[in-house]
Structures are given as C-alpha cells and as structure tokens.
Amino acid sequence: MTLTLTVPPGAKVRVRITNENGETTEIEVEPGETVTITLPAGSTVRVEVEVVDPDGRKRTETFTLKP
C-alpha cells in the first residue's frame, strides 16, 4: 500500500506514521515536494498529517489505514 502526498507551495507538512507495535516514523515534506510512502503490507497504520500554511495556521488530519 502506498500513500502519496503533494505539498502545495508555501505549506509545510509533517507526517507521523504509527504501526500496530506503536513504532512511529516521522517525516517532514518541504513546500512543492511530492513524496510517496510505502506502508507495510497487511498492517494497520495510523497516519497523522500536520499542515502549516504560509500564514502560520496549523491543521491536523488523522486517519487509519487497514489492509
């Protein structure tokens, strides 16, 4: 399973991925970048995406991906 994120110009994104064992991976994606994350097959993962807009506003979306 893959997750692809494209960050709009001016925004910053931090992604936290937590697996079933509670292990967390965190990455930051710079403005204008596209990143593809390969998620472990057969695992349920929690993905938290934090977006910081150019004006400093933050918003966070959290979702769970199941196999």
Rank of each mutant, 00 (worst) to 15 (best):
T25N: 04
V15I: 06
T36S: 08
D53V: 00
R57G: 02
P31E: 06
P8W: 14
T18G: 10
V51Q: 02
R16E: 03
G22N: 12
V35M: 08
E28K: 08
N19F: 12
G10A: 12
P31S: 06
V52E: 13
P8L: 12
T4D: 04
V47C: 02
G42L: 08
E33T: 11
T62W: 12
E30L: 05
P54V: 07
T2I: 12
G56E: 00
L65A: 01
P67K: 01
E26I: 03
A11D: 03
K58F: 02
E50S: 05
N21F: 07
T24H: 08
G42S: 13
E30C: 09
I17D: 02
M1S: 03
D55N: 03
T60P: 00
K12F: 10
E23Y: 10
V13S: 05
I27H: 12
K12W: 07
E26G: 07
E20N: 05
R46A: 02
G10T: 02
P8Y: 14
E28W: 03
P67H: 14
E20Q: 06
T62F: 07
D53S: 03
G22K: 09
I27T: 06
E48C: 04
V45W: 14
E48P: 00
T25H: 04
G22D: 12
V7L: 13
R16F: 05
T24W: 07
T36Q: 06
E28C: 04
T18W: 13
T25S: 05
T60V: 10
I27A: 12
E23D: 08
I27K: 09
P67L: 15
P40V: 14
S43Q: 15
P9T: 09
S43D: 13
T44E: 12
G42T: 14
M1E: 02
G32A: 13
V15H: 01
K58L: 04
P8Q: 10
R16D: 03
E30N: 05
E61R: 09
A41M: 10
T60D: 00
T25R: 08
E28F: 03
L65R: 00
M1Y: 13
R16T: 03
T36P: 07
D53P: 00
L3G: 02
R16H: 03
I17K: 07
T64D: 12
P54T: 05
L5M: 12
V7R: 04
K12T: 11
G42H: 11
E33C: 12
G42C: 15
I17V: 09
V7I: 08
T62S: 08
V47D: 00
E50W: 01
T38I: 06
V47H: 00
D53R: 01
E48T: 08
V45S: 03
L39V: 04
T2W: 15
P31N: 10
N21W: 08
T34S: 07
L5W: 12
P31W: 08
G22T: 11
F63R: 12
I37M: 09
L5V: 05
R46H: 05
R57F: 04
T44L: 09
V13F: 02
T64V: 13
G22W: 10
S43Y: 11
V47T: 00
V49C: 04
E20W: 09
P54M: 06
V52H: 02
T18K: 04
T25I: 10
I37C: 11
P9W: 11
V15A: 05
D53Y: 15
L5P: 01
T6V: 06
V45Q: 05
V15T: 09
E23W: 13
V52N: 02
P40C: 15
K12Q: 13
E23P: 09
V51P: 00
G22F: 08
S43W: 09
P40I: 14
V49W: 01
A11M: 01
D53N: 01
V49N: 00
L65K: 00
N19C: 12
T18L: 09
I17L: 10
D55K: 01
E50V: 02
E61D: 03
P67D: 08
V13D: 01
V52R: 04
G32E: 11
A11N: 02
E23F: 09
P40N: 12
D53C: 15
R59P: 00
P9D: 06
